[in-house]
Design a protein around this nucleic acid. Structure first.
Lengths: 161, 161
DNA sequence: ACAGCTATTGCAAATAGTCGCAATAACAGA
DNA sequence: TCTGTTATTGCGACTATTTGCAATAGCTGT
């Protein structure tokens, strides 16, 4: 279990300061562990704890937390969302281009890719912080019929099948 | 070599129309093959061909092209940029979290991951359209000294080493 | 506990990106 | 070529995100 104390240490080590705003944000994120929160939702929740926290602060803090790998920035069909990096069992996100659903998968799938990139390109992958995309099983059937398209554009494609 | 004719066919097949705006955008993108253009740069360039093209149209078109896999949306340190999908030798992007430099690597590195995801999760990966992130060789040395940080935050970390 | 240094914040203004809708213009069919 | 259908556009308004800067407040050292 990660404690706030741990974050304090993490911040201090790097010359960052633990402010009330950052604490409120950390609190909000841990309270919604596993959920995907939008910047707006986060702002609202943070404000319920600490009145006038500015949106600029929220964005800047979210950016910092992302850099420090405290949160994951997830790009789904509804836009960008955030969630606190889960401790223990690591999982990654993959979003379906068709239906927009976000799926999780175990980090172990990435070991091979990670190893190759380090060996050949000396590039240290941080894939847990990227959201991959593709087409889920459910949608593959539709795609084979329709070839292209997605939720939003679907309604415009009234002919062509 | 991909011709505009090919795009015309692609559009028609799916009920989309080839408008002058889309043509201008396609032209802009092909003229800057291999480069990473921001939405602003694209808008400016498109306008030099076709006067008042609205930003909304540019964004909508870019979104459509991304869905159709005509362009790649690349998330780098400077923000989101676009480039036309290269024909032939496929390559993917990986951006260094530290220095923001974008690197290319061959698609063949992804075959393993792709195969596993299809087998186990029935998920069809479209990794060419995602930008991965990590730390490049150059920056790994610095990171080992500094632990965390990036370009933008660097200046603020005056002590703590 | 106090003082100094400077990271961080809030504010205000700027920029970026999105959305609804009426007008326009591709395209298919006659 | 002309006509009808409807995908697409531009516009205006709106929401989201970013940025510069002066004021504030953590943290370190005394």
């Amino acid at each position: 279990m990660v404690e706030f104390k741990d974050y304090l240490v993490l911040f201090r080590q790097n010359g960052y300061r633990l402010t009330s705003q950052r604490t409120a944000l950390l609190q909000t994120l841990t309270d919604h562990k596993g959920e995907h929160l939008s910047a707006r939702q986060i702002t609202e929740n943070v404000r319920s704890r600490d009145q006038n926290v500015d949106t600029a602060t929220v964005y800047r803090t979210l950016e910092l937390f992302t850099k420090l790998h405290i949160v994951n920035e997830i790009k789904g069909a509804t836009g960008i969302s955030y969630q606190i990096v889960p401790v223990g069992d690591k999982h990654n996100h993959i979003v379906c281009e068709e239906c927009g659903t976000t799926f999780d998968y175990s980090s172990q799938y990435l070991e091979g890719l990670r190893t190759m990139l380090v060996q050949d390109l000396r590039f240290e992958l941080h894939l847990e912080h990227s959201t991959l995309s593709g087409v889920c099983e459910q949608c593959q059937t539709n795609v084979s019929l329709e070839q292209y398209g997605n939720q939003r554009l679907l309604s415009r494609r009234t002919h062509g099948t």
